[in-house]
Design a protein around this nucleic acid. Structure first.
Length: 757
DNA sequence: CGTATATATCTTTTT
DNA sequence: GATATATACG
């Protein structure tokens, strides 16, 4: 086994088992390419690693190799992952191989590593080292305020769009002063560049950074302060990057700067799994690697140890339809297992039917001995999870939704966090603003206007402005009194900060502020759950040794890894599933418009389509043994039933790897979906015809009352309104109606809110 | 100032 | 169908 020359005879690792590496023989069990990737420690190295070819294994083994062979000490290794989950898993695996020295590794996401560096040098970019990290909510509120202050019409130029623009700039490493020609565009008559600068300035005043800043500022520091850069260049002897195809320009520049000294940078990626271009990721980073790092070595990992031949065949056939790719062939590295089952494709009636059929199949797999935790349902959009959840609840099948609305995104948790933030950092104006009037204290718009004005005028945080304003005569006595009380509360809590366990402190804050009482008084059914969440929140606090470190963790991770679910079916988005594997994978919703998603096609055209196809490829290759794809004939979107065509991706799956499942008696006469019986229904003339003529949006008659257009109403007609009851139409104006209601008097209402009576 | 009601918009994907 | 924003009223 340990004969280094007997590489070709090494048996591949068994499917589905992560054979633990014995500490002394970390190279055992690697195939020749993997071994080469591990042992080529010096100089730039690009590892092109197809799905299921042991990428993570190579990364961890390489790291272990570097440490165990004495080439580097843990703190000299920089390891960048794409998700927090990947970082955690990597750390655990290294720790199990190397022991506690793994603690000293610089290992994390770009953003986590960015903060770590930025905290040390914050003053160089005009921040204090205890700066706040904003969440999306805060950012949006800030941009809105900005548009307001600058007199830009927020209706015409939505804050969302502007924020997205800022983010794209940041993804490309562009600070306002570097925008140059880029700046402007149409937005707000070409003022977007100036707004960007104003936004960054506001952040600085607030002593805050948004997500993009964590990288942008570090980059700024590295370029403007060579001495600082040198310090890190010197330190990081070896750099390892996971999911390299998903790095954006800013991250690329960041890496290039850090690697310039030792040049021992190893990037692992797969252009076929690049699915984050909408977030600024540049597949081009892979292409330019050899150019930017002269003498770079490229190793291809093409032996797939994960999936059966049929699954591989289906996935390869699909991805081959993409024109923009480096080109890689996945070979089945699996021995002793035949082709396995073909990929199942099934047409279903609608979303509910789809869920029902899938869950039946899941129960069958479970009866056959598959563990539920080895089964996943991977959806294109978060909204799709619901129908599966409902069905799984009905059948009593345990499940877990990963990445849905996340714990720290819930309203009550954000509120509690805001309280914690103000206690920890009284200058955090955005947090203060969030909770001044939660629970209701009678501090409304008027008070806030005054506070903002003073805050801007004197360039002080809101809480400080509040202090000054209550000392003046400006507010009405009532507002003045409540505000004084609130300031007093925060002072008191602030003083308690070091004196008691912080979880207790936050509990006290939530109780004394009346926040807990607010939910207790609430009669709605979900109030109960919210109180539970708050308890969970306080419990999570206990696991951190300071309020600061807790807040930092939350800002970066946004997920609550506290409660590890036991056995259950996993539901998540395709994006969330990258890097995971399951025995059986369900891929619902393969319909034109949903997958590929219409929006991707509209916004990015052919490139968008290819990215969607890569997403499909990622989905299929998550599976070890079984893949179940389904598409529904009609699906409800918002309120309307829409006929849906099977996804073009279905036609791209090689027929020899696919088994078309007939759903008995279901597909009688669906237009365009004729089941010709040849198992290739989506390639029939009918489907081709439908594909050329885009589907007509029409409400099917058997489920909904079609919302009537105002045009269908006539003056004098009788109508019924949910709230106002019956009435007579007096006038029709565009989509609005003037109706004289029998009981409620004459009102102007939207035509869509009434029905003919 | 708060509440209730009416309307608009929304869902692609996440660090 | 759910949730943010706008408006009217108390």
């Amino acid at each position: 086994m340990s004969d280094p020359f007997a590489l070709d005879d090494e048996p591949p690792p068994p499917v589905g088992a992560n054979a633990p590496l014995a500490s002394a023989s970390w190279l055992d069990g690697l195939n020749p390419e993997q071994r080469l990737a591990v042992e080529s420690t010096e100089g730039p190295l690009l590892v092109l690693s197809g799905a299921g070819t042991g990428k993570t294994r190579v990364l961890t083994t390489r790291l272990a190799h570097l440490l165990a062979s004495g080439l580097a000490r843990p703190w000299q290794c920089l390891v960048v992952t794409f998700t927090n989950r990947a970082a955690r898993e990597m750390r655990e695996r290294i720790a199990s191989m190397m022991g506690p020295s793994a603690e000293a590794l610089w290992l994390g996401t770009f953003h986590a590593l960015g903060v770590r560096i930025l905290r040390r040098h914050a003053p160089l970019v005009g921040l204090e080292s205890n700066f706040t990290i904003l969440d999306t909510d805060d950012q949006l509120r800030l941009v809105k305020q900005l548009l307001d202050a600058e007199g830009v019409d927020g209706k015409k130029w939505p804050a969302q769009g502007l924020l997205a623009m800022f983010q794209r700039w940041k993804d490309r490493g562009l600070a306002p002063q570097r925008l140059g020609e880029e700046g402007g565009g149409e937005f707000a008559e070409g003022r977007s560049g100036a707004l960007y600068a104003a936004y960054q300035e506001r952040l600085r005043v607030l002593n805050a950074a948004d997500f993009g800043d964590l990288l942008l500022h570090t980059l700024e520091i590295f370029t403007a302060h060579p001495d600082v850069l040198e310090q890190y260049q010197e330190r990081f002897k070896y750099i390892l990057v996971d999911e390299y195809q998903d790095t954006n320009v800013a991250q690329y520049l960041w890496l290039r700067l850090l690697a310039r000294r030792h040049k021992n940078i190893c990037c692992v990626g797969d252009d076929d799994q690049s699915i984050y271009s909408w977030r600024g990721a540049e597949v081009g980073n892979i292409l330019r690697f050899e150019r930017d790092f002269p003498g770079a070595r490229v190793i291809r990992l093409e032996s797939n140890y994960r999936s059966t031949a049929h699954i591989l065949g289906a996935a390869s056939g699909l991805i081959a339809c993409n024109l923009q790719r480096l080109g890689k062939t996945l070979r089945a590295g699996l021995t002793g297992v035949g082709g396995g089952d073909k990929v199942s494709v099934r047409g279903v009636w609608d979303g509910a039917d789809e869920a029902r059929v899938a869950v039946e199949e899941i129960e069958q797999l479970h009866r056959d001995g598959l563990r539920l935790s080895q089964i996943a349902i991977l959806v294109r959009t978060g909204a799709q999870t619901r129908e599966f959840e409902e069905r799984l609840i009905v059948t009593g099948t345990p499940y877990r939704v990963l990445g849905g609305l996340r714990f720290y995104e819930r309203q009550e948790i954000r509120d509690a966090l805001a309280y914690a933030r103000v206690v920890a950092q009284p200058a955090d104006s955005l947090a203060f603003e969030r909770i001044v009037n939660t629970p209701k204290r009678g501090l409304g718009d008027a008070t806030m206007q005054a506070l903002h004005a003073l805050s801007r005028a004197e360039r002080v945080p809101l809480l400080e402005a509040a202090r000054r304003i209550v000392a003046s005569e400006e507010l009405k006595p009532k507002a003045r009194q409540t505000l004084t009380a609130l300031i007093g509360d925060f002072d008191r809590w602030g003083a308690m900060l070091g004196g008691m366990p912080h979880s207790e402190l936050i509990q006290t804050v939530l109780d004394e502020s009346g926040y807990t009482a607010m939910w207790q008084a609430e009669k709605t059914p979900d109030a109960r759950g919210r109180l539970d969440n708050l308890k969970e929140f306080v419990r999570a606090l206990e696991e951190y040794d300071s309020l600061q470190s807790f807040l930092e963790h939350v800002a970066l991770v946004m997920e609550n890894d506290g409660k590890a679910q036991s056995d259950g079916v996993t539901i998540m988005t395709l994006h969330g599933a990258k890097g995971l594997e399951f025995d059986a994978v369900f891929l619902p919703g393969w319909e034109e418009g949903l997958f590929p998603h219409q929006r991707a096609l509209d916004e990015s055209g052919a490139a968008g389509l290819e990215e969607e196809r890569r997403l499909a490829y990622v989905g299929i290759t998550r599976a070890r043994r079984r893949v179940f794809i389904s598409h529904a004939g009609s699906r409800r979107i918002y309120n309307q039933w829409q006929d849906a065509l099977p996804s073009r991706f279905l036609a791209e799956l090689p027929a020899e790897h696919v088994e078309r499942q007939a759903n008995p008696g279901l597909w009688g006469g669906q237009a365009g979906l004729a089941e010709a019986g040849g198992g290739e229904g989506w390639q029939t003339p009918g489907w081709e015809r439908m594909r050329r003529a885009p589907p007509v949006v029409e409400a099917t008659s058997w489920k909904v009352e079609t919302p009537r257009k105002a045009g269908a109403f006539q003056v004098g007609g009788r109508v019924f309104h949910q709230k106002f009851g019956y009435g007579r139409i007096e006038d029709v104006q565009d989509d609005k109606l003037v109706v004289a209601f029998d009981k409620a008097g004459t009102k102007k209402v939207m035509g869509s809110f009434v029905t003919s009576a």
